[in-house]
Design a protein around this nucleic acid. Sequence first.
DNA 1: AAGACCTACAACCGCACAATA
DNA 2: CTATTGTGCGGTTGTAGGTCT
Length: 224
Amino acid sequence: MEDYPQVAGNYGCAINYQSEEDGEVRKGPWTVEEDNILSDYITIHGEGRWNAAARCSGLKRTGKSCRLRWLNYLRPNVRRGNITLEEQLLILELHSRWGNRWSKIAEYLPGRTDNEIKNYWRTRVQKQAKQLKCEVNSKQFRDAMRYVWMPRLVERIQAAAGSSTSTAGQPTDPNMVPEPSVTTSSDSFDAQGFEYENPSNAEVETMENFWSEENIWFLQQQLM
DNA sequence: AAGACCTACAACCGCACAATA
DNA sequence: CTATTGTGCGGTTGTAGGTCT
């Protein structure tokens, strides 16, 4: 058995081998050695032809696995770390337009992968819906997102842009999600005692107008 | 201190579609 | 036209590490 040194990801679990007709296929976390092999191969041969890459590089991985590792981890310019406020705002807006079209949403977030956005959605946004005891796709939750959560994000982005000093009563951690906390009532929504109610026509109009193409474009530029 | 629980995220799986033989 | 192969996408799972009790 080969000796695989350290694990590149944060997994420490045992490496799995699955026998196939023509040998074993490695599964599980990638090692530094494997990463290097794949990176070197792609540097020489370019992206694409993943099955060939898997075979020719000598990696005992499937083409799919190689593709995923490259796109989500090894590719240059992959952005890691916390999702910024601007990114959160874009994700919420684009998801409201396109739903779970993660790869399409990722196109608007340079350096972010569809996998990362999907993870963000599942861990943060779906959690909120769950706490509110409503469906992610329900009108209530969508309204709450659009008319409560997103305007708060806009405010915080503007505040952060306007001054570097902290404003009273506002959290200053730029990476903190402005999560609406759950109160005892399952129908109320928000961290600062805000009771969720259906938005007025004027509020709806204001927010609909905010999401002009220019604003989307502007946000995108901020992320470049 | 230790076990339970939670969160974040890397990676796998199945399916659909496109390209090619 | 049909079968096969490759690729991309979205859903889901498993686990490390952090936090709570």
